[in-house]
Computed example of a mutant assay.
Amino acid sequence: MTFSIVARQGEAYGVAVASKFLAVGAVVPAARIGVGAVATQSFARVAYLDELLGRLAAGEAADAALAAATALDDGRQTRQVGVVGVGSAASFTGSECNAWAGGVARDEGDTAYAIQGNILTGPEVVEAMERAWHASAGQSLPQRLHAALVAGDEAGGDSRGRQSASMYAVEPGSGYDASGVLADLRVDDHAAPVTELGRLLSEWEMYFGAPEDVQPLEGDLADEVRSGLARLGFSGDDLATALADWAGNANYEARLSPEGIDRRVLEALRAATA
């Protein structure tokens, strides 16, 4: 009923999942900073999430943790699970999962992934997701997770249709108030959930992402920003203060930089005054 990718990139861990199932994000994904990430699906056993993360935290490799957890589960042949830990990745598909069902797991040093799905249109879904993961190298983990999900969706995805999608990722020091939450997004019931998840991810990065492509507030750019802020009702002798006041009002404060103005904040200011 579901296709997912569980992955590690550097110190970041995350899961992205889509399904013809209401609120798939309430069931499938979990991740823990410094430990790993897990997806449980196909007659999902939610207890796997804490159990597997606990085993990873205790030092077990993903394949060993997954083998031990499934061995204790009488319903394991109906389950599907993906696990990524420090230096390890594993995927399990029970023999009673509805066709097509299968997965792949690889540890590639600085990155690792487990991709799996059931009730899919065919193996091309997992194959497309794996290709998209590699093709997106150089992007952030959430962007790579979403790229894989888009590829799986376009390749056929869940053979029954579309309903929900979710992403959860963690990384030390990231997110709002440096909470470590790199992305926490759910589309619970939507005609195009993977597309909507991408829109939400872009918004999330705007609100909680670090400053990027910062330009100094000098010359013509300073004049443009000062004029735009004044049109929006934010003016004063100190341009940085006026910018901070507007950005705080728009919830863009995470993107403020003492070095100047962030590219996406500048784009938002231009759009607001267009």
Score class of each variant (00 low, 15 high):
223 D>S: 08
241 T>L: 09
215 Q>H: 12
244 A>I: 06
263 R>M: 10
226 R>I: 12
242 A>K: 02
233 G>Y: 00
258 P>F: 12
227 S>N: 07
227 S>H: 12
235 S>R: 03
249 N>M: 10
270 R>P: 09
266 L>Q: 07
240 A>Y: 03
250 A>P: 10
249 N>G: 09
249 N>Y: 15
269 L>I: 04
234 F>M: 07
244 A>F: 00
244 A>T: 13
230 A>V: 02
255 R>Q: 06
257 S>L: 11
270 R>G: 02
240 A>S: 15
224 E>Q: 11
228 G>E: 11
227 S>K: 10
230 A>C: 01
266 L>H: 11
223 D>Y: 08
245 D>N: 10
231 R>T: 07
257 S>D: 14
247 A>M: 13
212 E>D: 14
227 S>F: 02
221 L>Y: 10
258 P>R: 14
250 A>W: 07
254 A>H: 15
249 N>C: 11
269 L>H: 10
240 A>R: 11
231 R>S: 05
250 A>H: 07
259 E>F: 13
252 Y>G: 02
268 A>H: 05
212 E>T: 15
220 D>K: 12
249 N>P: 01
210 A>K: 13
262 D>K: 03
258 P>D: 15
262 D>M: 02
225 V>I: 12
228 G>N: 03
230 A>Y: 09
225 V>G: 04
210 A>G: 08
250 A>L: 08
237 D>T: 02
258 P>Q: 12
229 L>T: 06
222 A>G: 00
238 D>W: 05
217 L>Y: 10
235 S>W: 06
245 D>M: 03
254 A>Y: 13
243 L>R: 08
222 A>Q: 04
238 D>H: 04
221 L>W: 10
213 D>G: 11
240 A>W: 09
262 D>T: 03
246 W>T: 08
229 L>S: 08
213 D>P: 06
236 G>S: 06
263 R>C: 06
254 A>G: 05
221 L>E: 09
264 R>F: 08
221 L>H: 12
235 S>G: 03
243 L>I: 10
238 D>S: 02
243 L>K: 01
215 Q>V: 14
247 A>D: 12
235 S>P: 06
265 V>S: 03
260 G>W: 09
210 A>C: 01
228 G>W: 03
215 Q>A: 15
218 E>M: 04
243 L>F: 10
247 A>C: 03
234 F>L: 02
265 V>N: 07
206 M>A: 07
210 A>L: 13
266 L>I: 04
208 F>N: 14
